[in-house]
Write a protein that binds this DNA or RNA. Sequence first.
RNA 1: GCGCGGGUAGCUUAGUCGGCUGGAGCACCCGGCUGAUAACCGGGAGGUCGCAGGUUCGAGUCCUGCCUCGCGCACCA
Length: 808
Amino acid sequence: MGPDVEYVRVRVTADPENWEGHGGAKVGEELILAKDLFKEVIRHHCEEIETFPGSDLIGRSYEPLFPDAVDRDGSETAWTVIGADWVTTTDGTGVVHTAVMYGEDDYNLGMEVGLPAQHTVGMDGAFLSGTHPSLDGRYVKDCDTTVIELMHDAGLLYREKMYLHDYPHCWRTGHPLLYYAMDSWFVRMTAVKEMLLEFNSEVEWAPDWVGEGRFGEWLRNVKDWAISRERYWGTPLPVWVCNECGHQHCVGSTEEMASMAKEGSPVAEDLHRPFVDDTILVCSECNGDMKREPFVMDCWFDSGCASFAQWHHPFGEEGKFENNFPIDYICEGVDQTRGGFYTLLAVSTTVFDSICYKRCLSLGLILDAEGKKMSKSKGNIVDPWDHFNREGADATRWYMVTAGAPWNPMKFDPNGVRETYGKMFLTLWNVHRFHADYAALDGFDPATSPKGNTTPLDDWVLSRLAEVVEGTTKQFEEWDFHKACRDIEEFVVNDVSNWYVRRSRRRLWDEADSDDKLACQHTLHKVLVTVCKLMAPVSPFMSDTIHRNLEGVSVHLADWPEADEVDKEIIETMALVRELAETGRRIRVDADRRQRLPCAEGWIVSGPDLSAFHEILAEELNVEIISLEKDLDRFQRVEVVPNRRTLGAKCRQDLPAVLQGIEDGESQAMLASIEAGNLVIAGYEIGADDIELRRVEREGYAAQTVQIADSSVSLVLDMSDSPELLSKGLARDITRRIQASRKDMNLAIEDTIALNVWMKDSPELFTPDKEWIISETRASSANFNSGEGEGDSFEVDGATIWFTVSRS
RNA sequence: GCGCGGGUAGCUUAGUCGGCUGGAGCACCCGGCUGAUAACCGGGAGGUCGCAGGUUCGAGUCCUGCCUCGCGCACCA
């Protein structure tokens, strides 16, 4: 009973209105239970006799329910009321019948107060004979009804009630389990608790809260380690016990075992069971025969020994252990708190007085796409081989690293692997192929080819590379693998492939050797080699293949890259250039001017010096020339627009007339009048509050402004047309269509074609633009005709174009 | 029951010391570009930042409670 729980003694005064199941009570009978549970339990009409704390009854004796089940065995406390502070009044009666051998609390209590420690159930789960004639030999879980009936018949049962509660089951078979007190060997871990805590504080944990929180909590509550197991397979417990005097000896080596062996006894060569069990030792105390304890050791003990066992220490491993202890880094799932993390520390603490790992990364679990734990029996597992075979191990690994922080649980999304494969790995491979194909064609050798002179584009990508090396190295060191890899991916896809390579294609197409081409090849070579080094720890296969192709040796033998100096200015400048290139496309969409139709001029208004990239920008924007202009007013004018809210209140039904007046008025003149305070439209005085100002492009221009750090830069495009521009635009469109045809026909880049073009209602196509088409499309012959033609056709700006392409 | 960590668009996620209109990718819709690769660019649609309170001039962010998911621990008489 709970010593501090309030109990009540009641007397039954009348029968209940209804009753279900076994049990019962007669009028006049007395019952004792926790006062809080009276309403829950009692169905009879009762009168309260007295209330008292549980401590009042401690020591009082009672008649056992099954008198023959357990021997008193001299116990003073058997069948007396005992106090226990874990007794609750949340369910039941507040009175607990303890079963010493079948629960940890019960066992501890029984040992504390001296209850007989006798089994009533065998290892087979059946009642031992002598428990009760109706129960003996029967599996305990089958006896619930019998027990209830026996107690009912003896008049010892008040009520029966079904209720749900948790119960342990075998995780594999689902069969119910019994708690069962049995002999075990323990390692007294509680004796080294302070050491465990001290050593743990020397370990660098990622994330730190697992070390301090979850694992620290586990250590603060450390229990003695039940190390023996009743299994056949496993590391035999090296303890022998004397049959005569009970002396116990733990053998420390094979030599010691051999030296203690009884004459004539086999000495096990193979230390596994069953051979080792045959070895009989001589007792050092009484010369009696000693037999090995039948247990093997918890297999987690073997895991905990990894720090030295992997080197076969202490058996002449020539310093391998000393050189690798404690190890720099281990990494396991967070569910290994009591497994790997703990047993490694437990063994090294008790055996070596030391930590055995300096850093520990606790990984989040991998869950299925719905966030449930993967389980073979539930069938929600992902077979990694599906992805290895489809997207490759590299993409699978890269996806898993970039999907989130390593310590967070991860919802594995097969789609994400696909995405990583397409985006990162195909892109990287294509960049490599692009470089390698031309390098091979040109006989490029990174070691001997002249360096060439780098362009600002090269300088930019090398600076970005340096920035990525510096940043990701730091992130790797600080456990932020996911951030590092996301940055590498961003660099490869966005900077290298989508900008550097795209902007460099024409440099490598040049068939003649050139300084510029060499600079580009050296740059690409360095970028690829360095990227391979950065990603090698995460995706070891493609990085190694590319590295071997480029450098002839494995990336895994290379040193980690050192960051070159970062030119922040060029990085910022290029960011602006790219922003402006995108802005140009936005302007064209808004102004409804197709991308292929060139503009005569583009102006950059204010902002930093971008002259190094004017050529790139001109191509991206498809403008003939980039110019600088200080005065935005050259392209924009201020326009007065009405403030309908104030004007509506003022003019009411005359508003349309006023709006019309404002629309018809000249903005500059109206502004001047407002300033002078004398603008009157349709009889109403118009003040500054009645209008708003809007900047609009002057006729023939389109502009947009981008914000950078502390200022703004505007881009203005000339929207005017000319015969020359229309001709160039037409040439672009024709070329584009022919190139698509070439691709559809699977022509190789060096193949030549015979070309025929017919143009109807088109602007004039000037000779230089015809020549440009011929050269771009590798036409060995070309005819440009007027009027309707044959073959494929398309329309552009009101013109209709036909063309035929054939291999020549 | 106790402890640790999550919950942000249909999905995966970023979000710094509390501070501008909560960013991005996938998928979707519209448009563009491409000898440019499962690529790229512009635009659109899509948000109760798990719920409820509180602190604050201001909360996705800090505090409290609750719901929910994952893990660990304990209990299951």
